[in-house]
Simulated assay, not measured.
Amino acid sequence: MTFTLATWNINSVRLRAGLVQKLLTEEAPDVLCLQECKSPVDKIPVELFAELGYGHIVARGQKGYNGVAILSRMPLRDAGHIDWCEKGDARHVAAELENGVVIHNCYVPAGGDEPDRTINEKFGHKLDFVAEMRDRFRESLPARSILVGDLNIAPREDDVWSHKALLKVVSHTPIEVEAFEEARAAGGWVDITRQDVPEGQLYSWWSYRAKDWDAADKGRRLDHIWASADIAASGHSSRVLRAVRGWTQPSDHAPVLATFDL
């Protein structure tokens, strides 16, 4: 089975349903994982996606906050979810394909503005979330699995527009990067994007605050596609759809894609 998977923080699936349709029409990934859907599951406009051939969906939702969904042209089995940090947040959902591959769709907390858990509860939550990911991976090594999502950390120096300028900015601080790499290594996960594009600046997020995001190009690679070590060699054709960030009323994230031969 060869399939292409995309991950995209959509920043409201109802507000941007038209953009989801546009992506599904123009790029036609076999599986699309969405984060920050900001919608109860029963309010997701699934009929619009089903009309385009995406009749399978596994999702977890909340009103106006968080939310993750996996849309697919291929049959899916709901493989459950993890309530990270036991907060009841809709930040994870898993689905199993017919070939036994399990897709995990994750939305890691952004962490607020101050990179200090003693004064910023949100940052503490983020660190605890990633630490729990690490511990779970240590307890049960992932196999035939793909983990994608807005992980809200840009780990490498070339994953941000300026390593030096962002060392004290949430998403690229040393403590976050260390936690991120510990979690990835604990599961034996392979960063498929960087397996395919090993060198050079690469971003998937550009702030709404920039007057001209494209010209300023102050981006960060916050969106990731990982594969367990046993299937990582099957991943290829990674790319970030930067142009999507320039669509009308866009998300501040661009979709990230990869293809797998499994």
Rank of each mutant, 00 (worst) to 15 (best):
C106P: 00
C106Y: 08
V108S: 02
V108Y: 11
P109E: 07
P109F: 04
A110W: 08
A110D: 03
A110G: 07
G111Y: 04
D113L: 14
D113W: 06
E114Y: 07
E114T: 15
P115I: 03
P115E: 06
P115M: 05
P115C: 06
D116H: 12
R117H: 13
T118F: 10
T118P: 02
I119G: 09
I119T: 15
I119N: 02
N120T: 08
N120E: 11
E121N: 14
K122P: 13
F123Q: 07
G124N: 09
G124F: 10
H125E: 15
H125Q: 14
H125C: 06
L127F: 07
L127S: 08
D128A: 15
F129R: 03
F129A: 06
V130E: 01
V130Y: 00
V130L: 01
E132D: 08
E132T: 02
R134D: 10
R136F: 02
F137D: 01
F137L: 08
R138D: 01
R138E: 14
R138W: 00
R138V: 09
R138P: 00
S145R: 14
S145V: 01
S145G: 12
I146L: 13
I146M: 04
L147A: 12
V148H: 02
G149A: 08
D150F: 08
L151R: 06
L151F: 10
N152Y: 05
A154M: 10
P155L: 06
P155K: 05
P155V: 12
P155G: 09
R156V: 00
E157C: 09
D158T: 12
D158K: 08
V160R: 05
W161H: 13
W161K: 01
W161E: 00
W161A: 05
S162N: 14
S162F: 10
H163I: 00
K164G: 02
L167H: 07
K168G: 13
K168N: 14
K168W: 01
S171N: 15
H172F: 12
H172I: 11
T173G: 01
P174A: 07
I175K: 08
I175Q: 15
E176H: 02
V177E: 01
E178S: 10
A179I: 01
A179L: 01
E181K: 13
E181H: 12
E182G: 00
A183E: 04
A183D: 06
R184F: 06
A185M: 05
A185L: 11
A185V: 07
A186K: 00
A186L: 10
G187Y: 04
W189T: 03
W189M: 14
W189I: 03
D191L: 05
D191S: 04
D191F: 04
T193G: 12
R194W: 04
Q195S: 14
V197W: 00
